[in-house]
Simulated scan of single mutants.
Amino acid sequence: MSNARRHGLDEHPTEVAELTAGRVEYRLDRRGPATVVVFYGGHLRAGLSLGEEVFAEAGCSVLVPSRPGYGRTPVSTGASAGGFADAAAALCAHLGITEVAAVVGVSGGGPTAVAMAARHSELVQRLILQSAVGPLPWPDRRTRLGARIAFAPHTEHVSWALVHSLVRYAPDVGLRMLLRDLTLLPVRDVVACLRQEDRERLLALFSRMRSGRGFTRDLKELAAAGDSVGQAVRVSRPALVIATRQDAAVRFVHARALAAVLPHAELIESRADSHLIWFGRDWPLISERIHAFLAEGPSRTS
């Protein structure tokens, strides 16, 4: 049995909404009246999930749109983070969602989450950022050049086919290769410290990733800070910014910048060994803080 199947990480069924802004692929897992909207970063789409258990445990419904270029959402839907934030708000209206308990930005999905909180404060009650790209240029030149070769639309299927084969037939090598650019610690130590359950969850996740046209779009859009500072200062809702100093993919300076610019932000420093904070030993404690954050009364800021 594959790692993905053993850990329930088979692709989740998704739907497509035809909106004025364009087509949006999404997944809506209904659990309760409160809804959380999650924007994932690079190589993830609505059919995959990462760290959503914390919201399920809080009894929240989870809406996950595939960002432009990922899954079945074309790059033409939303010309910017703000444009896709507007499309996501329209998707909420399409689905009858009149209040979002929190919008969550993961990694490269951070700017879209910030934009949605800034532009749609009547809809969004809170903002949660996890290892998120902040109001700084991202990524560095070396990473950008390498990614443009490996994850360009005409090469990404070959790159990911090799990765998928590697994690299946040489999992240790695959984990070291994939985690190398996600941690500032010696990657062999990081892999050696993984709990067996987390190791298998990671292998299952990596075996499903694809970039589509989304990652090269992200690189182009996020290479310049643009209006992200302007968006962040307009966020009137409370925010949690969660990140680790050991993150090599999105450096901790992004979290500090976000916490400094967002008017009502709390910075939580994860002790995780890599960009993947959900696999840190302190994630249960961070989950408790997220639950408390979601349970707080209606925001008084405006």
Rank of each mutant, 00 (worst) to 15 (best):
A225L: 13
F206V: 04
V233S: 13
S274A: 15
D282H: 03
V261I: 14
I242C: 04
D247W: 03
V261P: 07
A260Q: 14
W278Y: 13
S228P: 00
M209C: 14
S274N: 12
V253I: 13
R281C: 08
G226W: 04
V235C: 09
T244E: 05
L285R: 14
A259D: 03
F206D: 00
A257C: 15
E288W: 06
R208G: 09
P238T: 01
H291N: 00
A248K: 11
R234K: 15
H254Q: 08
D282L: 03
V233G: 12
L219E: 09
R256M: 06
G230Q: 15
H291Y: 07
G214K: 06
L219F: 10
L240M: 12
A272H: 07
R271C: 02
A265V: 10
I277E: 03
R256T: 10
G212W: 06
L219K: 08
G280R: 09
M209K: 11
R208N: 08
V235D: 04
I268S: 00
A232I: 12
V241P: 07
R281E: 14
S236W: 00
Q246A: 15
M209V: 14
A232P: 12
A224P: 01
E269D: 01
Q246I: 00
D273V: 10
A260N: 08
H275M: 01
P238I: 01
V261M: 13
L267H: 05
